[in-house]
C-alpha cells in the first residue's frame, strides 16, 4: 500500500504502457488463433456449408433444431457424458492416491513420479495406437491363457467394454498431470498444521479427511474442472484407439463432429454440434467452479 502511495502518475502510465506492450503479442495471438475461429465457427453453425463448396447459405436455427431431434446424436452425447464422468472421477481418485503415496519420503519416489508422468508427454495418437496393439495382441493372448473371454476377444472390439477401455487408457495417459497438481497442493500444506494434528491424535484416514483434503481444495477444484473439460473435448485418443467403434459404442460427440463435418460433408451442422458442446462445457465448468469455490471459501 505504501509503495502505491509513492508512485507518481507518470510512473503508473509508464507501467501501464509497459504491461500493455508485454501483453499485446499474446492478446493478438489469442484473438487470431482462438477468438477468430470461435466466431467463425459460430457463424458457420447457422449455415448449410458442406465444407467443400464455396456456396454457403444462412439457414437460421435449422441446424440447432435438427440437433435436438437427431437420433444420431443421442448415443455419442450419452457416451461423452459417461466418458467425462468416469474419467473425471477415476483420474482424480487415482491421481490423489498416487500423490499421497509419492509425497512420502522413500528412495525411488522421484523415479516413480517421472515414470507416472511419462504418458502425459506422449502424443495421444501414439498412446491410442500403442494401447490398440496391447489390447489386440498381448492382452488378448493373456485373456486366452487365463480363460477370460472379455480379454481374449479384444476389449476394444466389444460394444460393452470399448468405452470402458477408452476411459482406462485416458486415465493412464492423464493421471500423471493430475498427480503433479495434487503433489504441488500437498507440498504447500503447512507442516505445523500436520504436526498439530498428530499431537491431537489425528491419524490415518481421519487426518486425510479433516486436514489434508480440505487444505488441497484449490488443487481439487482445478483438477476436477480441467479433467472434465479435457474429457468432454477428447478426440485423438479415442480416434486412434477405437475410431468410435465398434459401431458407435465408443463414439464421443467430438468424433461425431468430425464425421458430420468431413465424412458426411455437413460442416455447418458439425459447427453447430461444436457450439453446443462448447456450451455444455461452459455450463458444467461454471457449475463446478462455483460449487467448488464455495467449498473452498467455507474451508477458509
Amino acid at each position: 500500500m505504501r509503495y502505491k502511495k509513492r508512485k507518481s502518475i507518470s510512473g503508473f502510465a509508464g507501467d501501464t504502457i509497459q504491461y500493455t506492450v508485454m501483453f499485446l503479442p499474446m492478446l493478438i495471438l489469442f484473438l487470431v488463433f482462438s477468438t477468430y475461429p470461435v466466431i467463425e465457427g459460430v457463424i458457420y453453425s447457422f449455415t448449410d456449408w458442406d465444407g467443400l463448396n464455396s456456396n454457403v447459405n444462412f439457414i437460421g436455427l435449422r441446424n440447432y433444431k435438427t440437433f435436438f431431434h437427431d437420433f444420431v446424436v443421442l448415443k455419442p452425447l450419452w457416451n461423452t457424458f459417461v466418458y467425462a464422468f468416469w474419467v473425471t472421477i477415476i483420474q482424480n481418485v487415482c491421481a490423489l492416491a498416487l500423490a499421497l503415496a509419492l509425497n512420502q519420503k522413500f528412495r525411488t519416489r522421484n523415479l516413480l513420479r517421472t515414470l507416472i508422468f511419462i504418458p502425459v508427454v506422449l502424443s495421444a495418437l501414439i498412446v491410442g495406437y500403442l494401447w490398440s496393439y496391447i489390447f489386440t495382441e498381448p492382452m488378448a493372448i493373456l485373456g486366452g491363457r487365463l480363460g477370460i473371454d472379455v480379454m481374449k476377444y479384444n476389449m476394444l472390439g466389444n460394444k460393452a467394454t470399448a468405452l470402458g477401455a477408452g476411459i482406462f487408457v485416458s486415465v493412464w495417459k492423464g493421471v500423471g498431470y493430475t498427480m503433479v497438481i495434487y503433489l504441488a497442493g500437498l507440498q504447500n500444506i503447512n507442516q505445523e498444521i500436520q504436526d498439530a494434528a498428530l499431537v491431537d491424535g489425528v491419524k490415518g484416514f481421519q487426518r486425510f479427511r479433516y486436514i489434508t483434503f480440505p487444505l488441497i481444495a484449490p488443487s481439487f477444484t482445478i483438477n476436477i474442472v480441467l479433467v472434465m473439460e479435457g474429457a468432454f473435448k477428447q478426440f485423438d485418443l479415442i480416434f486412434a484407439l477405437t475410431g468410435g467403434g465398434p459401431g458407435n459404442a465408443s463414439e464421443l460427440l467430438s468424433l461425431t463432429i468430425y464425421r458430420e463435418s468431413f465424412e458426411y460433408y455437413r460442416a455447418g451442422y458439425g459447427a453447430t454440434m461444436g457450439v453446443i458442446l462448447a456450451l455444455i462445457i461452459i455450463v458444467l465448468s461454471l457449475f463446478e467452479l462455483l460449487v467448488l469455490r464455495k467449498r473452498e471459501d467455507n474451508i477458509e
Partner: peptide
C-alpha cells in the same frame, strides 16, 4: 465469478480451434 466465466469460455473455445478456419469468407 467473472474469472470463472472467462476461464470456462476460454477452455470451451478449444472445441472450435481444433477444426476452425474454413478459408471462405462469409
Amino acid at each position: 465469478k467473472a474469472i470463472a466465466l472467462m476461464l470456462s469460455v476460454v477452455m470451451a473455445a478449444g472445441v472450435f480451434t481444433g477444426c476452425g478456419g474454413a478459408g471462405q469468407d462469409l
